[in-house]
Design a protein around this nucleic acid. Structure first.
Length: 321
DNA sequence: AAAAGCCACAACCGCCTCCAG
DNA sequence: GCTGGAGGCGGTTGTGGCTTT
């Protein structure tokens, strides 16, 4: 026995709603309330299924619906909530006044998901996409294809243990080693024997022990450079772990960005002030979860750029090949 | 200018949960 | 405790508009 349909579909209209139908629905609900959705269409003079009426009202006609683009804060809130709640769109929508579950779901699928994927983040787990990021290839290419090879198998062994922050730290270490070596050797990538020159400068332990590499700090290789982002990241990571909560990379970066650092000048020089944006914090009590965001457009823009363009660059192996 | 491809989003479908009888 | 109806939810589809070829 098949399931009984929610209503008799014979003669009922489907597809886009006309302005006349919308008006009938609005008028009826404003006058009588929606009552039982199944009986509403008949009473309101609509040739629609009750379910269709409910959806149209809930997702489009309800007076408290906020329309227009999602703000950066809303987007970050959705990402944070999704990392905790998963595809529970109605639960996510409960934290975003005026936004419907359907709207958030659509926005997730058409915008945020793609942004995360572009940034090398798995939108389901909110962790780096290790499936796409061939760490062995990344490390080898960054370390300039020398005979002293990283032990790829050893690297694969530790791969499952990596979290977002460790991976980010790897990327940052790689980037800064590359920059430091560039600087100290005064060579150009186009120069003959460039790769050989660079690779000779790398500590051999680094080549054979990826785990050590992960834990290494940039200043171990270059004390002159006062780059502290990695240190700040570690502190932020530690703080997040004490709270037993994994922070998304974006919020971790906000926190890490509070420190002083002198690298990436071309990125940071555009900022007049030190970044002081608080991490969007999530606090839980017994029955509800709340998200607190601050609003600082300039910093939003900076963090958005950092997240969208800079980190993917770090993780993009193609630039090294 | 026309056709094809792509994208965003409203709307639908079918399953699930809740709850009254 | 069981049943069935109503509403809720998440996944998916259809379509119109925009962009690219």
């Amino acid at each position: 026995m098949g399931r009984v349909p929610c209503c008799d579909k014979n003669g009922l209209k489907k597809g886009p709603w006309t302005p006349e139908e919308d008006q009938k629905l609005i008028d009826y609900i404003q006058k009588h309330g929606h009552g039982t959705w199944r009986t509403l269409p008949k009473n309101a003079g609509l040739a629609r299924c009750g379910k269709s009426c409910r959806l149209r009202w809930a997702n489009y006609l309800r007076p408290d619906i906020k329309r227009g683009r999602f703000s950066f804060e809303e987007e970050e809130t959705i990402i944070q909530l999704h990392s905790v709640l998963g595809n529970k769109w109605s639960a996510v929508a409960a934290h975003l006044p005026g936004r419907t579950d359907n709207e958030i779901k659509n926005y997730w699928n058409t915008h945020i998901k793609k942004r995360l994927l572009r940034s090398g983040i798995d939108p389901v787990t909110h962790r780096p996409r290790l499936d796409l990021l061939n760490l062995s290839s990344l490390l080898n290419t960054v370390l300039f294809n020398q005979p002293a090879r990283l032990d790829a198998l050893r690297l694969l062994d530790i791969k499952p243990q990596l979290n977002t922050h460790e991976l980010l730290r790897i990327a940052i270490n790689l980037m800064h080693q590359k920059q430091n070596l560039f600087k100290h050797n005064q060579v150009q990538e186009s120069q003959p024997n460039y790769y050989q020159t660079i690779s000779q400068q790398l500590p051999s332990s680094l080549l054979y022990n990826p785990a050590q590499f992960i834990n290494a700090s940039p200043w171990q290789y270059n004390e002159v450079n006062s780059f502290n982002l990695s240190e700040n990241l570690m502190a932020a990571n530690s703080k997040a772990n004490n709270g037993n909560m994994e922070q998304p990379m974006s919020s971790l970066l906000y926190e890490a960005s509070n420190g002083e650092f002198s690298c990436e000048q071309n990125l940071y020089n555009n900022l007049d002030t030190k970044l002081s944006r608080p991490v969007p914090s999530m606090t839980s009590n017994n029955s509800s979860t709340t998200i607190n965001n601050s609003k600082e457009d300039e910093k939003d823009s900076y963090c958005s750029n950092l997240f969208d363009f800079h980190i993917p660059d770090l993780l993009d192996t193609s630039q090294f090949i």
